[in-house]
Nucleic acid binder design. Structure first.
Lengths: 125, 125
DNA sequence: AATATACAACGAATAAATTAGTTATGCAAC
DNA sequence: GTTGCATAACTAATTTATTCGTTGTATATT
């Protein structure tokens, strides 16, 4: 699975939001200055070649939809990042950001609560 | 601050490891198949133009060093990611990976321990 | 049926990134 | 000082990504 280029990623973000959409609909969700219709159309077809999206045809018009979910992609993407920047350790990464105060106390408490639940669930097995 | 391209990132990873280095030394740390000397030299000069590295000159030879630390860059990079994929919430991101079992119980316990420490430290203020 | 409209497909033009050859200069060895 | 080597600077070539104009066809409108 390849990484998305910048332009590709923008289109995917829109498609993830829409679930499915025609080029016209995708275009509408772009901020100004919007790219040309053809630009989006091309990118979406490239994404299709690369296996990130597929489409359903209604006559000659195509409704595109993602083949990879935002969650799947972010999982893949973060794994690469954690591997490259934190020697593949989630713990190192999270600790780093906790210490850097990028995570608020409220967030940390919430995270701990969820982790306790997960740990309990895992250990119950 | 721009994002690094793939080739640029590889050079930066080496420079972060070396702390500082001549093109020749950077080249040595590359896996086979190593790029050409000139390729690394060019990339390092581009990195310099973009403000990611600088150099100290010894006569005609240049010793390059990062202007941005690996930690700084990863912070910037992850912030963008968290913003784009988890509506800017670290909590959402970490919870997601905890639930996805990408984080082991041992790691979670370690993370919780560190967070408890951080929370205490923050609250003490 | 003729015209207008909408859209996919194609492909050209440009821009950005990557790779490496060539050149020039300084230094070392002889 | 002449030769050879190392390396920075420059430049060319290639590849990949981005953007959008053009074309052809289907469908809707009159």
């Amino acid at each position: 699975m390849r990484e998305l280029t910048r332009a590709e990623e923008e289109v995917m973000q829109v498609l993830w939001k829409l679930k499915k959409g025609f080029v016209k609909e995708i275009l509408e969700l772009f901020d100004e200055p919007k790219p040309a219709y053809n630009t989006v159309s091309t990118i979406v077809r490239i994404l299709q070649d690369k296996g990130f999206v597929s489409h359903k045809a209604y006559g000659r018009t195509h409704e595109y939809f993602p083949l990879i979910s935002k969650n799947e992609y972010s999982k893949m993407h973060l794994s690469t990042f954690v591997n490259d920047y934190f020697s593949n350790s989630f713990e190192k990464m999270v600790s780093f950001f906790a210490k850097e105060k990028s995570i608020s106390v409220k967030e940390m408490e919430e995270i701990m609560k969820i982790m306790e639940g997960e740990v309990k669930k895992q250990k119950a097995k």
